[in-house]
């Protein structure tokens, strides 16, 4: 590991200033991904800006009923928070489906969003990877890519984003709060991560000198029906092969009043299924309607040589989750 400087930031402004002044600086939260990447030589920061002591470690309900989650709230604490379990079950379920107890105790909300792909070519500095070393090529395209993207990939990169949490945030219409030397702004969680295009080295819309300060979940006063389901190679402690987060609210007539649907592990970012949502909105909440809508979305899939199974897997997960969410209130 390369030697590096260390700054314990006392304020968000101090952290933003340090990030702006040192282009090779990285924020250190739980370190569960960053420290590993530093050991692997993938990340070689000149300065670590520790954000753990910033006043960003609380979950608070705002006057309008929305829920603000600070960037340093640990994944385990967020999953266990009574308001999250009650109002945003998909988020709690997604967090608990990710990593291990030890990792969730350390990993932060901001760090979960900013974690890097687990593509083995990205993590191995002896292999070509356009995300790690732009212009070096993509080893996965002709190599091992069973776990890689089927939607939205480019010639340059077929990596997937590994987060479970971010998939739930995308379906729940959350926003990501950012703070830089230019001030604060927020972006929809579903648009925070990018598609790879010609610049796979950029995972997110975060600007140089900005840090994630929190996530805001829109008001959900009653228990809004939502759920997360993940398929993986073993029963626990594995990244998703495909996952689905869904929010579904029906009208009194049983039609779809509100729907949010997002896929995980299919693309370079959580894949918000806007086409499926449009097809469902205002229509019947029936298995046929769900199948039609999900097929419409997944028609855009471009599987690689060895990952065509993901399309069928994701389809099955989505139909199961939507049917379950529609089930208890409708026959």
């Amino acid at each position: 590991m390369k030697p590096f400087g260390y700054l314990r930031a006392a304020t968000v402004e101090e952290a933003a200033r340090a990030l702006a002044e040192h282009p090779d600086a990285r924020c250190l939260g739980g370190g569960t991904n960053l420290v590993d990447l530093m050991k692997l030589g993938v990340e070689r920061p000149g300065l670590l800006v520790e954000v753990n002591r910033l006043p960003l470690d609380t979950v608070e309900e705002l006057p309008d009923g929305s829920l603000r989650v600070g960037a340093t709230v640990r994944n385990s604490d967020l999953a266990a928070h009574p308001l999250v379990r009650d109002r945003y079950p998909a988020l709690s379920q997604a967090l608990l489906a990710g990593a291990s107890g030890q990792l969730r105790n350390a990993a932060t909300t901001g760090g979960n969003l900013l974690q890097r792909t687990r593509c083995p070519y990205f993590q191995d500095v002896s292999k070509p990877c356009n995300k790690r070393t732009p212009g070096s090529g993509c080893g996965a395209r002709v190599g091992t890519h069973r776990d890689h993207a089927v939607l939205g990939h480019s010639d340059h990169c077929i990596a997937t984003h590994p987060s479970d949490m971010a998939v739930a945030l995308a379906a729940l219409d959350a926003r990501v709060e950012l703070h830089g030397t230019e001030g604060a702004r927020s972006v929809p969680a579903a648009e925070f991560h990018r598609l790879p295009g010609d610049h796979p080295e950029r995972d997110t819309e975060i600007r140089p000198g900005e840090l994630v300060t929190g996530v805001v979940l829109p008001a959900a006063t009653a228990s809004l029906p939502s759920a997360y389901r993940k398929a993986r190679d073993r029963a626990s402690y594995a990244f998703a092969l495909a996952s689905v987060a869904a929010v579904l609210n029906l009208s009194d007539e049983g039609t779809v009043a509100r729907v949010g649907l997002a896929f995980g592990a299919l693309a370079h970012r959580p894949w918000r299924a806007t086409r499926a949502e449009e097809a469902l909105r205002g229509g019947p909440a029936t298995p046929d309607a769900f199948a039609h809508a999900v097929d419409l979305e997944l028609r855009a899939a471009r599987p690689l040589r060895d990952n065509g199974y993901k399309v069928e897997l994701a389809r099955g997960l989505a139909l199961d989750v939507l049917t379950r969410l529609a089930g208890p209130t409708r026959t």
């Binding site: 314990r8 370190g31 420290v35 105790n105 350390a106």
Partner: peptide
Amino acid sequence: GRRVNSCLQLAVSLD
């Protein structure tokens, strides 16, 4: 009091 992987905790962060 919370279990963590000590291989991923930078000691400098534990002041």
